[in-house]
Design a protein around this nucleic acid. Structure first.
Lengths: 221, 221
DNA sequence: ACCTGAACACCGTTCAAGT
DNA sequence: ACCTGAACACCGTTCAAGT
């Protein structure tokens, strides 16, 4: 991780991408607090303030980080709109939960970068074939983004800083959580915690996604 | 805001609630960065480290803040389950958007405080009358929380730190955003931005909520 | 028991100076 | 043009000392 320090000089020693990649690696390994400007600079072998040659402030680095993650959400295969929308949602979610520290950054600011726009446009394209009128398709697309981002945020919220533990461990954590819910005061919550421990991650996400899509599809008469 | 400084002494000068209320006021006025331990301490007239007599660390203050906000989400009136669930969702959303700075705190950690449990239990109670079996009701309740929290997060994301501007101003901001979407590269996004500017806040929230509820209701056969 | 001042190890950001 | 060291105004948190 500790790269060799470059010689000072008038020529550009780094690229924006190197900086963003270093930031993402720190974020993945140690969560939000590990991705400080000072640590990013150290990781790329440069003084802290050198970063400001590439980005105006930390918020700009974070925006670039979000775009970096959205960059390789792949477009779904051709075909019926519903499976295509599902595939897009699944792809986006999996990118998000692979980078838990980035989820608050994504939810925390407007998503107006080129890759965010590309995915939004793609989603609207797919929904155009759903039978929804243009206004409903716009609202449906927003509703779907709310669901995908919200699901990722809740999924990532309980976890530690750094990477998400494997599913088996997360199920065990749910069972432990079950034991801590006061069952006589909150009987349904205790029961529900048990239910939620049987599925974790993708399967729960898919169940909800399909209910949302059912509701949206029904609105297309 | 600057309270008179209390005399030092062995007796408890503050309550947890005073500290949390001060934190909430700072958060509402100036966003997350205004709600630092040091500024909270100054607001209640105490040295920064005195806060650690009441809370073990900043995360504990934030958890108490979240609970403070959930505290006065009122239970919906008796009646059919669907309007009651809608009322609960609307009430929760309105509390969240009234405190934009608190939304990332809510999404950022597990919601396991007493008031979070109370609302979750209430939601499960209402869903028990929906015709969903217990397992589906648990998943439906989770899906609804994802929607409500996700919607609040996206709604609050574009805004400035501090209180959310009035709706008229937010609609104007959407129209400004419309002008910035490159319409030839992203034609559907540009059109959708126009649609989204006609409704803002509550109405968009309700539209999506009803689609989600439609999908959940359909799952009850 | 509760509070204080002082300190520690950090932040993001700015600025004048070097190459 | 790009980088540096140094500084500024902050953080959260700890600790020994006062009452």
């Amino acid at each position: 991780m500790a790269e060799t320090r470059r010689k000072p000089g008038p020529r550009r020693a780094l690229t924006e991408r190197e900086i963003v990649d270093a930031a993402l690696a720190l974020l993945d390994a140690g969560g939000a607090e590990a991705a400080s400007i000072r640590r990013i600079a150290a990781a790329v072998g440069v003084a802290p303030n050198a970063v400001y040659t590439y980005f105006p402030d930390k918020a700009a680095v974070e925006r670039a980080l979000v775009e970096r993650i959205l960059e390789d959400v792949q477009a779904p295969a051709e075909g019926d709109w519903r499976p295509a929308v599902e595939a897009l949602a699944i792809g986006l979610r999996s990118r998000l939960v692979a980078h838990p520290g980035a989820v608050p950054l994504m939810l925390g600011g407007p998503m107006d970068g080129p890759h965010a726009l590309r995915l939004g446009e793609l989603l609207l394209d797919l929904l155009a074939a759903s039978g929804l009128d243009a206004a409903s398709a716009a609202r449906a697309s927003y509703t779907l983004m709310v669901y995908v981002l919200g699901a990722a945020a809740l999924e990532v919220a309980d976890g530690p800083p750094g990477p998400l533990p494997p599913e088996a461990e997360r199920i065990a954590a749910r069972h432990a959580a079950l034991g801590e819910v006061p069952a006589q005061a909150f009987p349904r919550t205790a029961a529900a915690t048990g239910v939620m421990a049987t599925w974790v991650g993708t399967e729960q996400f898919l169940w909800g996604l399909r209910r949302v899509l059912d509701g949206l599809e029904a609105a297309a008469k």
